[in-house]
């Protein structure tokens, strides 16, 4: 029997494709239809459909017991969600902005990440934490940060950062079905800025597999999340004789190290692009992986294009902070000229 889900696609969606918001909404609706254990909870996710309308219409379809409006209490939301997960359910809590992970951090790091280890894998935490993530939408700090490295550094959680609607749907379905806790970072900047045709049916994208967006032979650009689009823009601006391989990691933890290593062993040059501040971020880790595994293949140092080691600025300076096509293109050209 075919799977029925919440809303049939509109004319516009059929023609132009889905936004990232719509793709995630569809994934949630399909999975809630398929699996009665799936429960969404968070601040205003029900009646209002979420501050970014990601859960729009779900409460109407699945009822108040499955799409639950919570008080503003992230520690309570996360702790209750973990309790639901160890009690046999598949909770999908939403933390409204990545900055609000702070109050929930204790529950995530000290409980969700550790159940498997402490119970000899007898109890795992099949939890998917949806988090609108990153800058570029004129929000202030605490609403524009990129904390993916923090949750990668602390063991026991998977960290997923899709960049496109198709990846978001497939990765979210895989995340909900994963037996371990997954932090699912949704790039706000891409939420409604990009549409593409997304498969209607049920499909999973394996967590931990990168995607080569463009093949090339001279230089490898490694990025994830919204920065994929700035990288594509930069690649367009480059001279034609530079052949760049663009890798979208899609998952930060576990990371597809082989994809990076294979590519850099081929190209001998690497530029890493991230929104987060430069120091001790994922870019630093990737540069180290390249050092460890590709040292004898490197033609020049690895270069990082990042945010700056400061708070995310208010909106007037936001675009100066975020890596843009110009900075990325410059880094590529500098690296090529080394």
């Amino acid at each position: 029997m075919p799977i029925l889900w919440a809303m049939p696609r509109t004319e516009k969606q059929l023609q132009d494709g889905l936004t990232l918001v719509e793709a995630i909404n569809e994934a949630l609706a399909q999975e809630m239809t398929r699996d009665a254990r799936v429960v969404c909870l968070g601040e205003d996710v029900g009646f209002n459909g979420g501050v970014f309308r990601v859960t729009d219409g779900l409460q109407k379809q699945f009822g108040k017991d499955r799409v639950i409006d919570t008080p503003l209490a992230e520690s309570g939301i996360m702790g209750t969600a973990i309790g639901l997960a160890i009690g046999g359910m598949r909770p999908v809590p939403e933390i409204q902005f990545e900055g609000f992970l702070g109050p929930a951090h204790d529950q995530l790091v000290n409980h969700a990440a550790r159940f498997r280890t402490r119970t000899r894998s007898a109890i795992t935490v099949p939890l998917t934490v949806r988090v609108p993530w990153g800058g570029g939408i004129h929000a202030p700090e605490l609403h524009s940060d990129s904390p993916e490295a923090i949750y990668t550094h602390l063991p026991g959680m998977k960290v997923v950062c899709p960049s496109t609607p198709t990846d978001a749907k497939g990765l979210l379905l895989a995340a909900i079905r994963d037996p371990d806790p997954v932090i699912f970072f949704e790039p706000k900047r891409v939420y409604r800025s990009y549409r593409e045709q997304v498969p209607e049916g049920d499909y999973e994208i394996e967590i931990g597999k990168a995607k080569v967006i463009q093949e090339g032979t001279d230089l490898t650009v490694v990025t994830w999340g919204a920065n994929v689009f700035q990288c594509l823009e930069a690649l367009d601006a480059l001279p034609e004789d530079i052949s760049v391989e663009l890798i979208d990691l899609r998952t930060i933890n576990p990371m597809d190290k082989d994809a990076i290593i294979n590519s850099v062993q081929k190209t001998g040059r690497c530029v890493v692009v991230q929104e987060a501040p430069k120091t001790a971020g994922m870019a630093s880790e990737i540069a180290t992986i390249v050092m460890e595994h590709c040292f004898l293949h490197l033609k020049c140092p690895v270069q990082r294009v990042c945010g700056f080691d400061t708070m995310m600025p208010y909106y007037k300076l936001e675009l100066d902070y975020l890596p843009d096509a110009k900075r990325i293109a410059e880094a590529i050209e500098q690296t090529m000229a080394y």
Partner: peptide, 12 residues
């Protein structure tokens, strides 16, 4: 910090 876990177990 274990008290929300108990709440979630009971919810489940």
């Amino acid at each position: 910090a274990q008290t929300p876990l108990g709440t979630g177990l009971a919810f489940a």
